[in-house]
């Protein structure tokens, strides 16, 4: 079950080409969906425009449940892009996996901890940036000794724990799903009996993975907004 990764070194920096390719594909799909469905915008929405507006309202609801829209409006674009990008990424690995010469090429980009940790770190760093920008350096620093002074070490740990859990949760869910799919696919290709016994759990697990992928995308955006509101909102 262990596959290699197509690595490439450019100027001493290592790229996992499979990750880069899948990220590009996910980004392309998201962009195409969003771009095509927002052509010919109308005041009375039809078809795909309704769908996109539903997503926007959904993310707006997530933000509003965490903070004032006055503060949270600036994260709207980030939230919509995150939820669509992560959802599409999660879905990409479901239909098949492509292995070429022992290297795994086609998979979910979110089944790689580097990618998810990068997204998580980006979100957390953004939350620190906006925390300083909106509340000032003093207000931002004061956030570390709330609600009690002796909780300062815990608050420091929390920042790193948040980053780790945010990234690893997504990675773990998707990676585990893909591992199981790979195992089932191996069973299915083992023979007629194997195929017959694998097809039902395969379908069930793929259906469940769609659900997991959607839930994880939602949770990632939800937690993003929770962390943002911790840093940005006055009350928490």
């Amino acid at each position: 079950m262990e596959h290699g990764a197509p690595m490439l070194e450019v100027f001493g920096i290592w790229f996992n080409l499979s990750n880069v390719m899948m990220l590009l594909i996910a980004a392309l799909i998201v962009f195409l969906i969003a771009f095509i469905s927002t052509r010919n915008l109308q005041l009375k929405p039809t078809g795909m425009q309704n769908f996109m507006e539903w997503i926007m309202d959904f993310v707006k609801g997530i933000i509003k449940s965490n903070m004032d829209w006055k503060d949270g409006g600036r994260f709207h674009v980030l939230g919509i892009t995150l939820i669509m990008f992560i959802f599409v990424s999660n879905m990409l690995g479901l239909p098949f996996a492509i292995v070429v010469n022992g290297d795994l090429w086609w998979k979910s980009p979110t089944a790689d901890p580097t990618v998810t940790m990068t997204l998580a770190a980006m979100v957390l760093i953004l939350s620190h940036y906006y925390g300083i920008k909106l509340k000032g350096l003093k207000g931002y620093a004061g956030g570390y000794i709330k609600p009690m002074k002796f909780l300062f070490p815990l608050n420091i740990i929390e920042e790193f724990a948040n980053t780790l859990t945010l990234g690893l949760r997504l990675y773990g869910n998707i990676y585990a799903g893909e591992i199981l799919l790979t195992l089932l696919a191996g069973l299915a290709s083992a023979g007629a009996f194997g195929f017959a016994s694998a097809i039902v759990p395969m379908m069930a697990w793929q259906g469940f993975s769609i659900f997991i992928g959607a839930i994880q995308a939602f949770i990632f955006v939800m937690l993003t907004m929770v962390y943002m509101s911790h840093k940005v909102a006055d009350d928490h």
Partner: peptide
Amino acid sequence: LGATGEFLNIGDILATLVIFILL
């Protein structure tokens, strides 16, 4: 965990950031 290289692939981090922000 997932990558099989014995190194931190900075390239992936850069690619993720660039692709996501560009998107």
